[in-house]
Each structure stands twice: as C-alpha cells, then as structure tokens.
C-alpha cells in the first residue's frame, strides 16, 4: 500500500513538473499569436478589440515577399548543399580509417560552438579581400558553414547504425554503386537525410548574424524583420508574421516526425519493380 501511494505521489509531482516545464517553454512564444490579433498598437492587457487586419495588410507588403522568398532560396541551397556534404563526411567518418580522422572531424564541427558574430566578421573581411559581391550567394555560403556541423551530427549517428554488408549484399546481387545507393542506402538512411534537410533549413531560415554581415541589397527574412522592428507601428505586423512562421514550423516538424516514424515501413514488391 505504502509503495503504491508514494508512487502515485511522485507520479503527480512529475505531472505538475511536466506542465510547468512545457509552460516555461511555450507561454512566452504564445504571446506572439495572441497580440497579433489585438487592435491596439501596444502589447498590453486586457486586449479590448480583436482584428484580423494585421494578417491581411502584411500580405500586401511586397518587400516582405521578397525577403521571405530570399530566405527560402538561401535555406534550400544551404540545407541541400550542407546535407550532401554531410553525407560525404558521415560516410567517410563511419566507413574509413585515415590519418588525423579525429582532428578533421573536430575542425568540421568547430563552427557549431564558434560565436557567429566572429564568424560573420571574418567572412565579411574574407569576402571583401576576395573581391566578392555581397549577395544571397555569400549568405548561402556562410550558412553552409554553420549548417554543416548539424548535418554531420545527424548523419553520422544515422550511418553508424548502417550495416556495411547491406551495401555489399546489393553489389553482390548485381547492382552497381548508384543503384545500391538508391535502393538500399537511401531508403535506410533517408529519414536521417530528411531530418538533416529540415534542421539545416530551419537554422538557415532564422539565422541573423551571418546574414547581417554578408547580405547585400536583398535582405533575408530575419534581416527584414529586424529592420521593421525599428518602427513601433510595424511591430504588430511582425507579430502576425511570427505567428505564421510558428505555425509553419510546427507543421514542418510534425511532418518530419511522421516521416521518420514511417521511415522503416516495408516496400511492397510491386512498388519496387514498377
């Protein structure tokens, strides 16, 4: 009896703890959508009048469209390139022995802990010396640098569990290296690749410091938002924009988790040969 009651007590405590924990994480964020529907210019309680106007007006700002489109472009290029490089690094690290392996990996991972402001300044100086025009291309290059360590971390853990003999079996059964990658390697490590793509896209999408130093005429979305926040009247629109980003992120992450969950489902024979 005693064991039972003490168990349920700690159980209740854990429930309260979990609720507090999640509240701490999410209540601040939820202020964004809440105030985005407020009629008032100022964020204050109580909210008296509700409106949808912020959302409607926001969509008419063409500068915002450009910034959003710029961020998506940068995000796609940065995530795809860093994931491809990450695949190569992860394979090399899990499959081969070579001199200075640990040091090489260490240098690849370093940008993860390096202050971005230092990197941003460094990259800017380098770009100027190299005579490069600051543009979305330089932003993308900078983002690849900071995204790569995350790709590598995700993909190494995925490739480590990958049995080399599966690929050998495929080669042995008559397939070439590309077909083997397509039919065996990719389906098995695919969820890791997708996770890497989504994470690096997200990192690039909300990255501010490097974009701040390296972008030219076209701002990315975070740079644009930062610029807008200097005028108080624009803040409610940014709240609306932030709310949309929040919802899209939520859907994206749920989707990626769903994909990961069904990553290992069986392919039917018809699916493979048709």
């Amino acid at each position: 009896m005693k064991i039972y009651s003490s168990y349920s007590l700690s159980d209740r405590f854990l429930t309260v703890y979990a609720i507090l924990f999640l509240s701490f994480l999410y209540i601040p964020v939820l202020f964004l959508p809440l105030f985005s529907f407020s009629e008032s210019q100022y964020m204050q309680f109580p909210i008296t009048d509700w409106t949808f106007e912020r959302y409607v007006t926001m969509w008419k700002k063409t500068k915002l469209h450009d910034a959003l489109f710029a961020s998506i472009k940068v995000g796609i290029f940065a995530s795809v390139i860093s994931t491809i490089l990450g695949i190569l690094v992860a394979r090399a690290m899990t499959r081969y022995l070579f001199p200075f392996k640990k040091s090489v990996l260490g240098f690849i991972m370093l940008p993860m802990v390096f202050p971005e402001i230092i990197m941003g300044v460094g990259l800017l100086i380098f770009a100027i010396f190299a005579g490069m025009q600051l543009s979305l291309v330089t932003v993308t290059a900078g983002h690849i640098l900071i995204c790569l360590p995350f790709s590598v971390v995700i993909l190494i853990s995925r490739f480590e569990g990958f049995d080399k003999s599966l690929e050998e079996a495929s080669l042995d059964l008559g397939e070439n290296a590309w077909q083997t990658f397509y039919r065996i390697t990719f389906p098995i490590v695919g969820s890791g690749i997708l996770a890497s793509l989504l994470l690096t896209f997200t990192i690039s999408f909300d990255e501010f410091l490097i974009a701040f130093f390296l972008s030219g005429e076209d701002p990315t979305l975070p740079i644009y938002i930062y610029g807008q926040l200097r005028h108080v009247k624009n803040i409610p629109y940014m709240l609306a924009l932030g709310s949309i980003i929040l919802i899209v992120s939520f859907i994206t992450i749920s989707f990626s988790e769903w994909i990961r969950g069904r990553g290992m489902t069986t392919k039917k024979i018809y699916g493979i040969f048709k």
Partner: peptide, 29 residues
C-alpha cells in the same frame, strides 16, 4: 556485381526496409 558468385553474409544482411519477397527478388531487377 559482374562475378558468377553470390554470397550469404555472416549476419545475413537482410534488407530491413523490404519484405521477404523483395529481399529474395532483389537481384532480379
């Protein structure tokens, strides 16, 4: 993949994302 040999691996190397029939028919593509 060009040799007239086939191998049964020590850990069997069954493709985990395919069913039994797809595993067996793998090399017939």
């Amino acid at each position: 993949n060009k040799r007239p040999t086939n191998m049964v691996f020590q850990n069997y190397a069954i493709f985990p994302h395919m069913d039994v029939a797809s595993n067996i028919g793998y090399g017939l593509r």
